[in-house]
Each structure stands twice: as structure tokens, then as C-alpha cells.
Design a protein around this nucleic acid. Structure first.
Lengths: 234, 234
DNA sequence: TCCTTGAACTTTGTCGACAATTTGTATATA
DNA sequence: TATATACAAATTGTCGACAAAGTTCAAGGA
């Protein structure tokens, strides 16, 4: 009577789908940092046993997206504001290295993909879609990293950018219109420098771009700290 | 009759111990790249069920130390010689960044740990212990990275150095006496530059040190390629 | 001789169950 | 009232079993 493909999923896809779904929800801040991830509840939600759930959580823990508290539970990894300065330092370095590398290599084929991401970013800006901007910006820079052709850089940089997605989501509501348009222009300049093979100019643009983003986030945080504290009594 | 603590291990230690054991064996090349890791056989060897074994393999896969072939088996990750140039590029960058960072911060307390690692390295050199040299060299540079105080750098760098351990192990038998002693001297110079807070000198030393190691490995590989091919018929 | 078919075997992916550990609560005691 | 203790509930860590996918190898046909 019932569609026989209803409850049957492809063998091996269980862990993968749970991993992808949780990862998306964590990075989009749909799952708040610190919120508990119960294996039993997740197994009910995804309609599978605890084993694939556990394996997905293990992968997420390996990427630092969740924290496993032994014999207790797993929680969404918290954002450590104290380590933001070191994060910015690493982010700036990778911005520079990947942009320089891309200028040194400049592959026309991958350059098309970079342009496509840039268009998506510009579209998100005109649509005032803050979330879309964050995602497209991430993809834009990962595409540049792939153009640089060093997989060690790409994976490390992608992880840093993902961490940044969560931080930016925290402050998406305070996005104003000025900065995003400036980012579009800066991206265009980066593309031009890469296509011209001008490594030094690419490096300078990366430094400025990174500094701009760091300033923006720091300003958001400072603005946030000025707000009167809301004391919650549980 | 039997000691009741014999077959009982602490809850939660199963995955951890298997992970640590396999990781050690992979990085020491006791497990050859490409060799299969059978879950059932591993569960017999470690005397536990397949679940903790699987979780250990999943962690190792997350670090790129093993490769999971879906529905087939898991193998020890192969060493991709084609990507060695990009590896050297990333390694050089992290050598520089961590050494510079350490010079900028210079914490006397952690500096003691760096010195201790350097002593271990020097001891391994005088003992002509090639394996010990590889391990101590890794620890020495990780200690410097910790001194730099950026955990993003430290984890990334540590992973790169681990990958290097496997490559160096391939050629440990061809170590001669000249280079290791030179490394001891270069390490000493690095320590001096860090303690003096001389960032530029630390940077230059890191560049030279990295270049030296890259040259060494490339020479080993070149020497290896000159050997007559042994054609194996399976 | 080479390729296809198929059946036995091997290994993984998923499941439900049980035991150990921790957390929360209620009770007893000072 | 505050603290300690014991008990109950919730959650994870581990286990053995079964089914699905892949591999191997022999038999059969072109």
C-alpha cells in the first residue's frame, strides 16, 4: 500500500545527510551556540537510529562545530570572543596568501567561477539580503583560494570563513548599505588585480579588505557592548 | 579467579585509545600508506566491538590520515607526491608565521618548553636516532607555534608537521650527519632571535630553515628516483 | 580466448538493547 | 535554613546482530 521507497534511504547517506543538515543549521545560527544536541531527539527527528547521528556529531566535533561533553551530551560550539583577535590575524593572513596565489596563477576557467560568485554577492547586496551576502562572500573567497591552487590553504581558509559566518550572523541586522557596496567594489578590484597577475596589488587589496571586515565586526561588537545589559532571571 | 579489572576499561576510553594507537602507527609509517584497515580485524586486535573502532576511524578520516571507501573499506591515506610543492609552500608559510609570532610575544615560561624540545632534538641527533629527531623537531616547532599564541595557526601547523613526519620517515635511512647538526644550530639561532624579540631575523631564519628542509626532502626524492626501478609482478 | 552471469564470501552501514555515568530531586540530618 | 545522602531520570558508550553493497571466483556462452 505504502510507497516502498518512502522510508528507505540510500545506504551510507544517513550520516552524510545528518551532518549536512546540522552543519547548515549551526553555521546559519539556526542552532544557537551552546544549545544541546540530544542524540535520541535527533534520531527521532531524522528518523534513523543513533549510530548515524553519532557519526555525524563526531565529524562535526572534528571540525570544531560542536563540543562533546563526555558522558553528558553534545552542544553547539560556543563562539569565543576572547580569541577574536587571533582569528582576525589568521583570517587576514589567509586573505592575503590566497589572493596573492590567485594572482600568481590566474586560471581563466576558475576565474569564471570567481566572477559568478561575485555576481551572486552583488545580487545579494542589491536585494539587501544580509544572509545571502555572507554566504556569497564566503564562496567568493573560497573560489579565489581554489584558484590559488593550494588545497592546504583552501581547506584551512574555508574553515576560517565558516567560523566567520557565525560571527557575522550575530550582527547581520545591523548591516548598513554603505559597507556591502564597498565590498562589491573591492571584490571587483581584486578580480582585476588577479587577472592582471599583479601580485603586489592583490596583496594590498587583500590587506585592505581584511582590515575593513575586521573594523566592521569590531564596530558591531563595540556597538553591542554599549547597549544596556538585559539581566535575565531564569 | 581472574583480575576483574583485566577486561574492563574506562567508559569512553575505547575510541580514544584506538585513535591514539592507529594515529601513532600511521604517522610512524608502521602502517603503510594504502594498507587496508579492517574494522572486524581491528575490533579483534583491540578486543572491543566495532563501534569504538568505527568512531576512531571517523576521527582519523576527519584529519585526513585515513581514506574511507564507502561500502568497501578504509585504507591508510596515501602520500600524494604530486602535491608536495603546495605542501612545502604551506609549510614554509607556517614556519615563518609562527616563528615571527613567537618573537613578537616571547613568553619566558613557554620558552622553557621550547628549550626542552630543542634539547631532546639535540640528544636525538647525537644518538643518531633519526625517528627521535623527526618527533622532537615536530614538538620543537609546535612549541614555538604555541608561543606565538594563535591556536588557529597551531592546529593547522601541527597537522602539516604530522604530514611531514610521514614523508621524512620515508627517507630516514638516508639521513647523513651533516644536516641534523646544522638544524640544531639553526634552532639555536631561532631561539636567540625569539628571545631578542627580533621579528625580522626570526622571519629570515624561518625562511632559511624551511628552504633547507625542502631542499633536503627534494634531494632525497631525486636520489630515490635515480635508483633502478624494481618491477614487481603480483 | 574473452566476456558475461551469478553465486558465495567479505566488509560495511544501520539497528535496537543494555550498562555505566551524570544530573536532578527529594528526603533526612545537623 | 543549609548541607549531605540516596534515589530516580536522562543520556551516553558499547555491544552483538542483521541486511545491503561490494568483491571474488567459477561456470557458461559468444
Amino acid at each position: 500500500m505504502r510507497n516502498e521507497t518512502e522510508n528507505v534511504r540510500v545506504r551510507g547517506s544517513g550520516t552524510q545527510s545528518v551532518y549536512a543538515a546540522l552543519r547548515r543549521e549551526i553555521l546559519s545560527m539556526a542552532l544557537e551556540p551552546g544549545s544541546p544536541l540530544d542524540e535520541v531527539r535527533l534520531s527521532e527527528r531524522f528518523k534513523m537510529s543513533r549510530t548515524p547521528i553519532r557519526e555525524a556529531l563526531l565529524r562535526l566535533a572534528g571540525e570544531g562545530l560542536v563540543t562533546t561533553l563526555p558522558n553528558r551530551n553534545t552542544i553547539v560550539a560556543t563562539i569565543d570572543f576572547a580569541s577574536l583577535p587571533t582569528y582576525f590575524e589568521a583570517l587576514t593572513l589567509m586573505y592575503r596568501v590566497t589572493t596573492r596565489g590567485a594572482a600568481a596563477r590566474r586560471d581563466a576557467k576558475i576565474m569564471q567561477r570567481v566572477r559568478a560568485r561575485q555576481r551572486e554577492f552583488a545580487d545579494a547586496v542589491t536585494a539587501h539580503d544580509a544572509f545571502g551576502m555572507i554566504e556569497a562572500n564566503r564562496e567568493f573567497h573560497v573560489a579565489i583560494a581554489e584558484l590559488a591552487g593550494n588545497p592546504y590553504y583552501t581547506t584551512f581558509f574555508a574553515r576560517l570563513l565558516d567560523e566567520g559566518r557565525r560571527i557575522l550572523r550575530l550582527y547581520y541586522s545591523t548591516f548598513d548599505d554603505r559597507l556591502p557596496r564597498q565590498y562589491v567594489d573591492e571584490h571587483e578590484e581584486m578580480i582585476a588585480a588577479i587577472e592582471a597577475g599583479d601580485i603586489d596589488r592583490a596583496d594590498r587589496l587583500a590587506i585592505d579588505h581584511a582590515a575593513q571586515i575586521v573594523r566592521q565586526i569590531q564596530e558591531y561588537i563595540a556597538r553591542d557592548l554599549e547597549r544596556p545589559l538585559t539581566i535575565e532571571i531564569p
